[in-house]
Write a protein that binds this DNA or RNA. Structure first.
Length: 489
DNA sequence: TCGGAAGTAAACAACC
DNA sequence: AGGTTGTTTACTTCCG
């Protein structure tokens, strides 16, 4: 195989796709050569002394369509030949085969019932030390739709290597279905314990409950995060929320769909895939997470209303429907605040063991846990280089951990600079600057020469750039600029 | 009292 | 024509 050239999607290296010359999933003729390719991969892996495993999976039509806008070679370890292999389950005592072939149904169907981890992703691969796996992308799919027939993995450059990090590690996906793993043997995992400590994701059972208290933005983020290419159709998003949230249990209530669309439209964590990139999608379009959101989380959808010049008038007699919806919103806010408070309290016991902190929280469980008990999936923390900078967090920002957890991490200040840590060249915050952003005309948005606020809301949002620098996270879609971050290259 | 967060309703346009 | 999708604004409650 030729040495692959790894594509960068924004600052995220995309690992999805298939090996070179991999035919579409209808073509079986080259299966043998494909297997030879795999063998070569395996040999290389073995030679490096590293064990990998991988779940083969079917390419969904969606991902096939998405491949159309990915001009780079499709390099990851996904193949259409999954059905031709016998499922392989490694055991605790045997050396795990580099790849385990698991049929997609097995791979994804039983997630919420078995809780079994389906694959492992080493945090780094020795021969590619400059890359580290983003723990967020190691999470499982609890998603029932066909859009989740394959997994993708994102790797991020380590601190000192930035964008010129050379060949990528091979994607590693395996399935340590062993009981030891399930019985709390996390400390034996490959995931650095430091990540677990930092992420606070050890209290999996509480943190990973998904319930009606999770706001739409978090739900959508969580759903899209696990989706192939972080992309789904609106219909798939509907289905997922119907399945995983109480918000949509009433079939006659279509309001939640409106809310979903509202969040998709208004929250910059989500972007609509342009039609030219959504080939094969007949109705509507695809929605995906922005690279920044995939890495770092989602911000409040309601930020767009921050217009100090505009104060909505309150009616003397509120309409009944407004009252009801307002009450629901208020309840949701209250629950969010409580979760936030609980987490603050939990984090105020830094010297306690994880189990003690667990007990301190005494969090209620709501609904069925969707998350794996595996630390591979629940390592919500940021990559190490991002964790190095302890910064206060924006109350407007729901980071990756928070978005995956019903409880926010903390709720401190809103410095304008903190979330520009997404810059792939980490810098001490004291030395951080905004690079080429020109805030005199609306910051990231206004910095574009061709930018003209063509809608009132756009102008409103742009007016907030100087507020906290978060505008870049709020604006996107047709009438707004895509989310972007300054990256020095 | 104020502002943020969150959910919802609704108007409207575009599209299928 | 009607339904769906997407955008935007408005309004409400709850809470710190």
């Amino acid at each position: 195989m030729d040495a692959p050239s790894w594509p960068m999607v924004g600052s995220t290296m995309r690992m999805t796709g298939v090996p070179h010359d991999q035919p579409d999933h209808e073509d079986r003729h080259s299966q043998q050569s494909t297997e030879e390719e795999w063998q070569q991969i395996l040999d290389r892996v073995d030679a490096s002394g590293h064990e990998l495993s991988h779940n083969f999976s079917m390419l969904s039509p969606q991902s096939t369509a998405l491949a159309a806008f990915d001009p780079s070679p499709r390099q990851s370890i996904e193949t259409s030949t999954a059905m031709d292999f016998e499922p392989h389950t490694s055991t605790a005592n045997s050396k795990m085969l580099p790849y385990s072939f698991v049929q997609p149904e097995q791979q994804y169907e039983g997630w919420s019932t078995t809780g079994a981890p389906q694959f492992t992703c080493p945090s780094a691969i020795p021969e590619h030390e400059q890359w580290s796996a983003h723990p967020l992308s190691m999470m499982p799919s609890g998603l029932p739709t066909s859009a989740h027939m394959h997994q993708s993995q994102n790797y991020y450059p380590q601190e000192t290597h930035h964008m010129s990090a050379g060949p990528s590690p091979m994607l590693s996906q395996g399935s340590p279905h062993d009981s030891e793993f399930m019985d709390g043997g996390w400390e034996h995992s490959d995931v650095p314990q430091a990540w677990l400590e930092r992420s606070g994701s050890d209290d999996v059972n509480e943190l990973d409950a998904i319930d009606d208290e999770v706001c739409y933005a978090k739900l959508l983020w969580r759903c899209l995060l696990d989706a192939p290419e972080h992309t789904m159709t609106l219909k798939e998003l509907y289905d997922w929320i119907k399945e995983h949230s109480q918000k949509a249990k009433d079939p006659k209530n279509r309001g939640w769909q409106n809310s979903v669309r509202h969040n998709l439209s208004m929250n910059a964590a989500f972007e609509r895939v342009p039609p030219r990139e959504s080939q094969g999608v007949k109705k509507g379009s695809l929605w995906r997470l922005t690279p920044a959101a995939a890495r770092d989380g989602v911000i409040s959808t309601t930020r767009y209303r921050k217009d100090p010049k505009h104060k909505p008038l309150k009616r003397a007699t509120p309409a009944l429907k407004r009252q009801i919806s307002g009450a629901k919103g208020g309840q949701a806010t209250r629950n969010a605040q409580r979760r936030q408070q609980q987490l603050r309290e939990a984090r105020s016991y830094p010297n306690l063991s994880t189990r003690q902190r667990h007990n301190q929280r005494q969090l209620p469980m709501h609904g069925l846990p969707l998350m794996s008990p595996s630390p591979y999936y629940d390592n919500h923390g940021h990559p190490p280089f991002m964790q190095m900078q302890e910064q206060p967090r924006s109350p407007y920002f729901v980071d990756a951990e928070e978005a995956y957890s019903p409880m926010p991490r903390s709720a401190p200040l809103t410095p304008p600079r903190m979330h520009l840590m997404y810059d792939m060249q980490p810098k001490p915050m004291g030395d951080f600057n905004f690079g080429h952003i020109d805030f005199t005309n609306g910051g990231i948005i206004g910095g574009h020469e061709d930018f003209t606020p063509d809608t009132p809301s756009l102008a409103t949002e742009a007016s907030y750039m100087s507020d906290d620098g978060m505008q870049s996270l709020m604006s996107h879609n047709a009438s707004r600029e895509p989310t972007s971050f300054p990256v020095d290259v």
